[in-house]
Every structure is written in structure tokens, then in C-alpha cells.
Nucleic acid binder design. Structure first.
Length: 286
DNA sequence: AACTCGTACAACCGCACTGTG
DNA sequence: ACACAGTGCGGTTGTACGAGT
């Protein structure tokens, strides 16, 4: 059985909104709010369906909507977030205050896709996570996945290895102007230092860490709650907080590459700290 | 001036998700 | 557990407008 349509289309107006309709909608919402979109047009005296009213309000009339062209920074952010999240426009819009998912979607299809195509190819997100120090205690996973050695030697090795990998990867992709194909996360600082414990992973352990490719964020085998972190770019000029959201089904988790993914993501969820990217080559944070 | 074509963006459509009875 | 209404989301379409011929 199909669902009933959201509104009865008979007698309802479609197409572009007029100034008068906008004014009616604005003043009604200012006065009564929009607790029920379905009932709103009738109450407001608009010959539109509730869905159309909601869309018009959210995408155009809401007071905090930022109009005008996207800045270079906003476009860069969209590119980065899109690489990370894919076509999850609402999630991307959540990171750009005043911008709507529809607007971002449009600007992606009309401007940014082209801009990336001009670079011959879309940059690939690829990366590995590594926790160096200052993390919450997690002794259960700690035994399995990390040592408590606070010496930074391994972290340096890690940087060397990934630098080479990054360079190789970048060469293979032939993409090195604005982005490369490797994301490297070398350290996380937890905000709460009371129960911190230092972790470090050696190279062989690191080799088993999950690669963060496109499927990482959408694979049904990798289902986690959301987590966020600050990413500091190596040139020190850009700093952004990235919200990673995945589906919520930890029950059916099965990770071929071992349990490390559980551990690291648990740590990330709990830490919410700062990531400092090592100093090497070009790279893309997606 | 008239026409065609491409671009930008607002709006629509259908499906998915969530809350509720 | 189920059905349904309301809402959110992403893909797609429609239309206005400017550039080119």
C-alpha cells in the first residue's frame, strides 16, 4: 500500500513563490510558528501544500539564511566535507551556518564538481588514524591495540612511513595541486587530562589500522555513533572541526582488519580532542 | 532582433525515518 | 507489532536569464 500524498494537489498552486505569498508565510510563522506544516497553509490562507511551505521557509525565507555567493573558504569546506561525507547535503549544511542543503547541493553541481574535474580527477580520501598520547584510559582495548610507551619514536616512524605513502599515492593519482590522496592523523589530545593515559602503536600494529576510504563512512559493517575532532592543517593556517557521523548499529560490527577500528573509534568518540597532522607533502583532509 | 544553448538555482517528487496512537 | 502522519533528505526537474550566433 502506497502512502497517501503529503497534500491534496487539486487546487494547490505550484511553481515559483510570489512576494505576496512569501509575506503571508513569513508573517504567519512569525506570529504562530510552524508546529504543523501540513496544517499551516490552510491556516495561513496559502494555496500551497505544507511541504512546499516548509521548503520555501527553510531554503529561502528563514531569517538566518545567508544569501549571496559562496566564499572561497566555504567552497573549500564543501569540497572537503563532500569528500568525507559524500552527498549528505544536510550534514554538510550543518557545518556551514546560514547555508542550506539545497543551496550547497546546487553549488556543488554547478560549480564545485566542475572545479574538481578541472583537476582531472576527484581527490581520494584515504588515511589512517593513530593515537599518540593524552587519551582517556581504556585498559581493555589498550592491551590489545596499543602500548603505554610515551616515547615518540614510533610516532616519528609513523610519520616517515606515511609521508612516503602519501607521496607515492599522490604521484599515482597525479593529483597534487590542492589536494593529495592521503590523510594522516598522528596525534589526538583529549580535553580531559585527569585520567589520561598515553598510547602508542608500533609500525606493525599501525599496518592493521583501518584505511579511511570512501567506504569507511558508509559501509554497513562499520556502524558507529558520531564523533567529532579538530583537525589542524600542517601549514598552521587552517583549522576546522570535523563532525563524523555514521549510522548507529554497533551490534553487527564485523571488521575484517581486526578490532583496532573499534578501539580507535571508541577513543575518538571519547576524546573529541585535537588532531595535529604531521608535516609532509600535500594532503587532503576529507 | 530572434533564436538557441548553457547555466544557475528554486522548487518539486518520492522515499526513508521517526514518533505516536 | 503495526499503521499512519509528519517531517527530513537527496535526486531530479522546471524555469529564468545571460551569452553566443
Amino acid at each position: 500500500m502506497g502512502r497517501a500524498p503529503c497534500c491534496d494537489k487539486v487546487g494547490l498552486k505550484r511553481g515559483p513563490w510570489t512576494c505576496e505569498e512569501d509575506q503571508v508565510l513569513i508573517s504567519f510563522i512569525q506570529q504562530y510558528g510552524h508546529s504543523n506544516w501540513r496544517a499551516l497553509p490552510k491556516q495561513a490562507g496559502l494555496l500551497r501544500c505544507g511541504k512546499s511551505c516548509r521548503l520555501r521557509w527553510i531554503n529561502y525565507l528563514k531569517p538566518d539564511i545567508k544569501r549571496g555567493n559562496f566564499t572561497k573558504e566555504e567552497e573549500d569546506t564543501i569540497i572537503q566535507l563532500h569528500e568525507m561525507m559524500g552527498n549528505r547535503w544536510s550534514a554538510i549544511a550543518a557545518r556551514l551556518p546560514g547555508r542550506t542543503d539545497n543551496e550547497i547541493k546546487n553549488v556543488w553541481h554547478t560549480h564545485l564538481k566542475k572545479r574538481l574535474n578541472n583537476h582531472n580527477q576527484t581527490p581520494k580520501l584515504r588515511g589512517r588514524m593513530m593515537i599518540k598520547e593524552n587519551l582517556h584510559d581504556d585498559t581493555q582495548n589498550n592491551d590489545k591495540n596499543a602500548t603505554t610507551n610515551s616515547n615518540s619514536t614510533s610516532a616519528n616512524n609513523f610519520s616517515d612511513i606515511t609521508s612516503d605513502e602519501a607521496r607515492n599515492s599522490s604521484q599515482q593519482s597525479g593529483f597534487s595541486d590542492d589536494f593529495s590522496s592521503f590523510t594522516d592523523v598522528s596525534s589526538i589530545e583529549a580535553p580531559n587530562s585527569m585520567d589520561e593515559q598515553k598510547y602508542e602503536a608500533n609500525e606493525s600494529e599501525f599496518d592493521q589500522f583501518p584505511i579511511i576510504d570512501d567506504t569507511f563512512w558508509s559501509s554497513p559493517e562499520l556502524c558507529y555513533d558520531s564523533f567529532s575532532m579538530d583537525v589542524v592543517f600542517p601549514n598552521g593556517t587552517e583549522e576546522s572541526q570535523y563532525q563524523f557521523q555514521t549510522c548507529q548499529n554497533v551490534e553487527n560490527t564485523s571488521v575484517n582488519q581486526g578490532d583496532n577500528v573499534d578501539f580507535w573509534l571508541d577513543v575518538l568518540v571519547n576524546a573529541g580532542g585535537t588532531l595535529e597532522l604531521p608535516e609532509f607533502g600535500d594532503f587532503f583532509v576529507g
